[in-house]
Computed example of a mutant assay.
Amino acid sequence: MNLDTPIPDRVEKPTLIYPFESAPQPGQSLEVVPGVLWMRLSLPMALDHINVWALQDEGGWAVVDTGMRNETTIAAWQGLLTGLPQPQPLTRVLVTHMHPDHVGMAGALTRQFHCRLWMTRQEYLHCRVLAADTGRQAPDDAISFLQRAGWGEVAIQNYRARFGHFGKYIHPMPDSYRRMQDGEDIRIGEHVWRVIVGTGHSPEHACLYCPDLKLLISGDQVLPRISSNVSVHPTEPDANPMQDWLASLAKLRREVPDDVLVLPSHNECFRGLHARLDYLMASQKRSLDRLHKTLKEPRRVVDVFTTLFGRRIDESDAGLLNLATGESVACLNYLVSQGLVRQTLDDKGVAHYQMR
């Protein structure tokens, strides 16, 4: 996507269809179609839940995503497993991507049931790398990245205090796994699910599409009410995940028909996939165009928060500041890659971005 094509004055939100009156209560399940269960787990954050899925398999249940490691989730899983319509063991654990709310309980469940973890290679390895940072001090490269973005000393000290906590939110990963690959067909019980990999939100995110059931387990690649965070991280400061993200949305539109019921990781199951994808792409394009127009004068990363998010971000809100910084750098790196913006460093090493 480039900014040369016409941009509508307004991007109207599509009218999506939500076929279920309510979501299952945490620790309970709801049948989406025969053999597919919707379950919801609590999260200790503003986004207070994650949807996970149980698929009837030969000899038991395959589950997709697992929730974050904490005592509440551990107790909820025990209730879910005993409350399944046919209480049977787990046959495998499939994880869409490596964020803690998705992979957090994978190690515990695979060990409990002596079953295999299924993930894409980049997600599995990336998760292992981040878990290995547990207990480390924040590296100099990360501090330089944040200083370059314009963070002040208070924010950087907060980052130092929080660094290396990833491993606390996940059970130790299994030492082996079954790799999922883009385009692969996986038989689970009576049905075949196709792996459709997307990037941008995470390195190699797996969606699962079942043509027979007309279902798409979308993970975080497409959500009905919120947009997924697309960030540049200190480990790869020159990355262009926004380009990957936009390409992945277009790929999903090509490869998955519009008549599916979408089973997302957050919010509710919905119909209207193509309209939602069109909205997400058009909305992001408008944000990029709006950002580009504000760069007539040089701006730091921390100066564009209001343009992109419509609000100031307080540096004392460490989690939100981190997300806003990562996504702002992703937008700026995209504009740089398109030749629309240049980046320069001042004598303190702070990056400034300006329209070419």
Rank of each mutant, 00 (worst) to 15 (best):
K251M: 04
L263I: 07
V350M: 14
G60Y: 08
Q137S: 12
R286V: 13
D317S: 12
F309W: 07
G167T: 00
G339S: 11
K13I: 04
C210P: 00
R254W: 01
T82M: 12
V103K: 08
P89N: 00
S265P: 09
S144K: 08
L215F: 13
G27R: 11
G27N: 10
M119R: 05
I226V: 13
W38M: 02
E236H: 08
D314N: 10
A138L: 12
Y334W: 09
A239S: 15
G349I: 05
G326K: 04
T73A: 07
V33A: 06
M1L: 06
R116N: 04
V52F: 15
H233A: 15
D259Q: 15
M355C: 05
A138Q: 11
F305E: 00
D220I: 07
L332P: 03
P34H: 14
F166C: 09
V63Y: 05
M281S: 09
E255I: 00
W61Y: 11
C269S: 02
R286D: 07
D141Q: 14
A330W: 08
G183V: 09
A161D: 11
G35R: 01
N158H: 13
E58Y: 06
C210D: 14
P203I: 11
R92E: 04
G83R: 04
G83Q: 07
R121F: 00
G310A: 07
P174G: 07
N267F: 11
Q78N: 09
S227M: 14
R69I: 13
M180W: 01
E12S: 13
P8I: 10
R179F: 03
V154R: 09
L249V: 02
E71M: 02
H201C: 09
L288V: 11
L320A: 00
L295Y: 06
R92Q: 13
Q78M: 10
L277N: 04
R128M: 08
E268I: 00
P264L: 02
L280F: 02
G104P: 06
S144Q: 14
E123N: 11
G219Y: 03
V52Q: 12
I188G: 06
E315L: 02
E31F: 06
M180P: 00
A351S: 15
T5H: 10
V195A: 02
V103D: 12
E297K: 10
Y18K: 08
W53F: 15
L332Q: 13
C210H: 06
L80G: 01
R194V: 05
V232E: 12
I226D: 08
T96W: 05
H201I: 03
V301N: 11
P234C: 01
L263C: 10
H171C: 06
H126G: 15
G152Y: 04
L213D: 08
S248M: 13
S228M: 03
G167N: 04
E236C: 08
S176G: 02
G200D: 03
L117R: 03
L335V: 15
D212A: 15
M242R: 05
Q157K: 05
P234I: 06
R286M: 13
M39L: 11
P237W: 12
P172L: 09
A351Y: 00
D289Q: 13
V256W: 01
T134M: 14
V304K: 05
K348F: 14
P237I: 01
W151L: 15
A155S: 09
L261F: 02
R194G: 01
D259G: 14
R300E: 05
S316C: 07
P172F: 04
L3Q: 03
V302F: 15
A46P: 01
S265T: 06
